[in-house]
């Protein structure tokens, strides 16, 4: 039976990309909802996207001539960060969902060296700063969208390639790079759990600052914990759960709460504890 998380991930993936005429006609949704950023990495040029990608919007606003810092987009990201934290990564992100599915493939599995998780903070800095550097046209470069975003290739470039023929005449070396990069990422995430989220996603990097201060928190009851270590063994992100329950890398999959035999790990929202015994994997 599918876990509740898989159901929510499926619904969010379909919901965030529910503009079906876009896929059929090779167009994108142009309604007012596009003014609102989604809480996850979801390319706004995906034919089905009904909202904006926060990373794309942040870069596009910084690269433009009118505003170099978008209070609106940054404020939305802060609200998502403080209300959900990396729950967005674990439960709502379509590209995260894809990574979960690919990791189920029977490929060899590897651990991720800790230093690799720092790369995404460099990329986040680039998202905030590189678009500010004007090119000869006076407009900055959306470097992450242009060179590094596999979600854009998968959700926008490939569907539009097939549904909007004029694009085929315009593709060049960049498109080829994007396809190769996407294939490399898809292979990478089949070998390392959430490899893209952990190493390269600037949105995950942004939300990771909020995990300790988010309304959604994992709470450890030390008097109930018998140090059996099942929680850390169950954690697919390879985190020391009892040492740091609200670790910046925790995507709130809740495998730790479900694996704990004594109920020592529970989640709280805004200070309210959930009922004991809810199994999100069942």
């Amino acid at each position: 039976m599918a876990s509740l998380r898989s159901v929510v991930q499926t619904l969010s993936t379909l919901g965030f990309n529910s503009y079906l005429p876009g896929f059929l006609n090779g167009t994108i949704y142009r309604g007012p909802l596009k003014a609102i950023c989604l809480p996850s990495l979801n390319c706004y040029s995906c034919p089905g996207a009904v909202g904006s990608c926060p990373i794309g919007s942040l870069q596009a606003m910084a690269a433009g001539l009118a505003y170099h810092f978008s209070f609106y987009v940054f404020g939305l990201l802060m609200v998502f960060g403080v209300t959900l934290g990396r729950l967005s990564c674990g439960w709502l992100c379509p590209f995260g969902f894809l990574q979960d599915l690919l990791y189920r493939l029977p490929t060899p599995k590897f651990s991720l060296p800790n230093w690799c998780t720092k790369i995404k903070y460099v990329l986040l800095s680039g998202v905030l700063l590189i678009p500010l550097i004007p090119t000869s046209t006076g407009i900055g470069v959306l470097y992450f969208c242009q060179w590094l975003c596999p979600a854009g290739t998968l959700e926008a470039a490939i569907p539009l390639y097939f549904s909007f023929p004029p694009i085929r005449t315009a593709i060049g070396a960049l498109f080829g790079w994007r396809i190769l990069w996407l294939l490399a990422i898809l292979l990478f995430v089949s070998l390392i759990y959430r490899g893209f989220c952990r190493t390269l996603c600037p949105l995950g990097a942004f939300y990771s600052f909020f995990n300790r201060y988010c309304f959604f928190r994992i709470h450890l009851y030390p008097n109930k914990c018998n140090q059996c270590g099942r929680c850390s063994a169950a954690c697919p992100m390879e985190l020391p759960v009892t040492a740091e329950p609200n670790h910046p890398e925790c995507i709130r999959c809740l495998k730790c709460t479900n694996s704990c035999p004594t109920g020592a790990i529970q989640f709280k929202y805004a200070g309210h504890t959930t009922k004991e015994g809810i199994n999100f994997e069942a």
Binding site: K34, A60, M61, W177
Partner: peptide
Amino acid sequence: VLQKAIQICLECIG
């Protein structure tokens, strides 16, 4: 934000 999001982003599609 809306103006940028309702146009196909050429960078995003490579």
